[in-house]
Design a protein around this nucleic acid. Structure first.
Lengths: 345, 345
DNA sequence: CTGAAAGCGCTAACAT
DNA sequence: ATGTTAGCGCTTTCAG
């Protein structure tokens, strides 16, 4: 099932080809194709028709080199395999849509070294800006970002020192906020369920915030259950079964993300637990496709889409009063009580 | 909260800077940085150290122009807002990881016009290959792809005529396969629940396959319910309630995707339907994060990850015996009976 | 193994 | 409104 390609090696068309085909100088053709105003309607028409007829596609490599500007925005995220980052990317993509800027995505797999590689690769295309998840980078990556001479927006997290701009939420505060809400609702025996992954700094900070928050009320985690890999919903079930059979008197389960929380919720409902009376539950992220669950899981909205939009707007220079660099946007994550947590007592 | 950037406009470093800093010709520096063998270890060492110390990042724009080669692969998908495409992208990303090729993603929002724009934009970077979802394109887009002179892989779908290579499944067959399975299991009053979106060609083909398949058994759809937008899980609930209250004697519900199917399943379980006895249900895609549901939804695996991997391998020239162009990989979607469908009678 | 020259395809800056 | 000239920063090619 294979065929060789047509023998004629069609050299890609150049501006010169269009120029010759319509008897207008390369420069003018270039002007038309970049939608510059200073061309007569007649010439413009002629050039456009020829270009279209020939199927000319401009060479941005050459254009970028000549003009020293590239309409690309490097976007670097750890993963695409849960809904969190795709939602951010969607926000970025939307916000950039009418700006002439084009997002270019890279994935790091939560590895700092891979991040450094991807970053190097992307910066070598001399993008107009970069959006990168998190505030933790290798020294080399940090140096590259500092020296790139373009706007950098670190996103998702605001707990730390940004290189340039930052748009995110404080995961530490989110953890503390949840601790306060849990305690206010009268729960005392709290279990934590999360990922083994140590390189997910935001999850780590949430957990830290939670334990610190509990500590201010004189409490500590009663038990902890960690997982790695696999289907989150299923893992949530399994972990919940494990932690409840180990520590039967838990009265609250805090999940590091909504997916495992949803799995846990389905498990507890099937086992006939009284939620939220006997057992309270909460997750993190506020993913809205879980809306159809039998009960609405308590969670904290991580403002993912909004983060993408705002980060992109900073790069695009929108809404910024012309100020370049050094923006700090800390979004306030909203606690959604849902149905799985008692009202504050 | 803003600060102006440092006054010194640091011009990005060039090869010449490195060359001067270490007293080696630009050419040799270039050789070292491209890992070419023909440089003495001593010079190599010296150059590498200088480059690192200076924080030099090569300019791929200039490199690409000079060498007429760009290590980019354009990847164009309709959306990032359900797990389907991120999974494909993950497959592509993994397969390209050790090839020196870099994927660049573009999103079309299921719009043919937007696809054309994104494609134009991406081809203007002269990528080494392109991967694009679906076989339906505008005439202009098709012309661009044909004339790009690079390997093109259309993915996800195999019902139609590819431009160059194709990796996918037949959604029409998947629909027919499901029809056969439904009928074999003894169900007769079948409802269809899907999206209003007419531009999702694959969903349309699945539905067509389903109705055609049913027709071969002398059956037709008893009712249809369509949705647009919103949380899929919740929509699944609502649609299921609607269709069942309108047509109470349905004995099978076919959902156009697993997410709405999961919502429907949760609804039916909560209403005490006997699944799969009284009512059978099935979705499409085989998304594995639904594994933790109370029952495993019958579905057809769309091989998303595998499609990404194989498409990327074609572009990278792996596993192809050196053949360029014209590959046709039709994957066989597996029906997963799950728990929501009776065994064939 | 290393260097010098030429030019990739386009656009900034300057004519006209 | 249109054309001319001179590079952009790198790599190809050819010489040593």
């Amino acid at each position: 099932m294979s065929q060789t390609r047509q023998p004629e090696i069609r050299r890609p068309l150049t501006l010169r080809d269009v120029s010759e085909a319509c008897g207008v100088s390369e420069m003018t053709v270039s002007r038309v194709l970049r939608n510059r105003e200073d061309v007569s309607p007649a010439t413009r028409e002629k050039v456009l028709n020829t270009a279209r007829a020939l199927g000319y596609v401009p060479n941005k490599i050459a254009g970028g080199l000549a003009s020293q500007q590239v309409n690309l925005v490097a976007v670097i995220v750890p993963s695409l395999s849960n809904m969190v980052f795709p939602e951010v990317l969607t926000g970025i993509s939307e916000a950039l849509d009418d700006t002439g800027l084009q997002p270019v995505f890279g994935v790091t797999g939560y590895s700092a070294e891979k991040e450094e590689e991807v970053l190097y690769e992307m910066l070598s295309w001399r993008p107009s800006g970069a959006i990168i998840a998190g505030l933790e980078h290798t020294d080399a990556a940090r140096a590259m970002l500092e020296n790139a001479g373009i706007p950098i927006v670190e996103i998702m997290d605001s707990d730390g020192t940004p290189i340039d701009s930052v748009v995110g939420i404080s995961h530490r505060l989110a953890g503390m906020q949840m601790a306060d809400a849990i305690v206010a609702a009268g729960y005392r025996r709290i279990g934590f369920l999360g990922s083994k992954m140590t390189s997910d700094h935001r999850a780590r900070k949430r957990m830290q915030g939670l334990t610190d928050g509990l500590a201010t009320h004189g409490l500590e985690l009663a038990d902890t259950e960690l997982y790695s890999g696999g289907s989150a919903l299923k893992k949530g079930r399994e972990m919940t079964e494990a932690i409840l059979s180990r520590t039967a008197d838990l009265d609250f389960l805090y999940y590091s993300n909504d997916m495992i929380g949803a799995g846990g919720l389905l498990y507890c409902l099937s086992k006939g637990y009284d939620i939220p009376g006997q057992l309270g539950m909460a997750g993190f992220n506020g993913v809205d496709f879980l809306d159809g669950l039998p009960m609405k899981l308590a969670t904290i909205d991580a403002c993912r889409h909004e983060i993408g939009v705002q980060a992109a707007n900073i790069i695009a220079g929108k809404d910024q009063g012309g100020v370049i660099g050094g923006h700090r946007v800390e979004l306030t994550p909203q606690l959604v009580h849902g149905d799985t947590m008692r009202a504050p007592s």
